[in-house]
Design a protein around this nucleic acid. Structure first.
Lengths: 119, 119
DNA sequence: TATGATGCTTTGGAAATCGAAGCGCAAGGA
DNA sequence: TCCTTGCGCTTCGATTTCCAAAGCATCATA
């Protein structure tokens, strides 16, 4: 993490208040961040394994995301495996209703994919 | 919305499956998207008003985000006011645990701002 | 008629993201 | 002992996204 990583208590993009939720909205609104957390909720993974889970995302971006997320204590590196911290698990759990919601979204927009049990 | 806007049923960044949740993670992982939804959950707003709520964000980006979000039916334009659709309200509600979580995050990282009652 | 507010669009430059290549290391096989 | 494979990343040039300022047309008020 560098000094520009959003974290509670400091001003972030579009908000000088330091309100925690603003930091969260800024942090999560960066490409791949949500996806990385989501994938790690399925279990710890090393760098290349995680890259594969994210559809071969750019290694350079993965690298910076991982250091951002570990910097704000949502992830931790144990040996060669990244895993969610307690805080990170809580976040993913807070976001879990997204899975059900997205199915409703699919229904209402008349989307095709149905054979989808894996949240 | 153009053809590249993530929506359920089509491949998105990092996922060919068309799984709805992947589209959601891609869509929400764009700068300002979460923030815009969040701000609109406090009530409808016109273009410039919304821009102010988002801390004077760039009008060009706001414009493209608004058309993306209306394109996937999370927002609708009524007269000169953007407002959440039913689907959009459901999404914000699904995301609402984020507010409580972010406060815990602030506590655990020893952040300063406390005078913060507005989620 | 001016003045200010609105909903945007345009534009040139800055920053984020991309993807391919490469580095050093460790393990396994011939 | 070499050779290959996989690992965790970095580097770097190219593309995409984002940005802030300026501008345009329109409407309301003065």
């Amino acid at each position: 993490m560098d000094a520009r990583t959003p974290r509670p208590g400091v001003p972030v993009r579009g908000s000088e208040s330091g309100r925690p939720v603003m930091a969260a909205l800024d942090l999560l609104g960066r490409r791949w961040t949500l996806r990385i957390l989501w994938e790690l909720s399925h279990g710890p993974a090393g760098f290349r394994e995680l890259q594969r889970r994210c559809g071969r995302m750019s290694s350079s971006v993965l690298s910076t995301r991982l250091s951002e997320l570990t910097g704000v204590r949502l992830l931790a590196l144990h040996g060669d495996a990244y895993r969610l911290t307690r805080l990170g698990e809580d976040l993913v759990e807070a976001l879990s209703p997204l899975s059900d919601w997205s199915r409703r979204w699919a229904e209402e927009t008349g989307a095709g994919t149905t054979g989808d049990t894996e949240g």
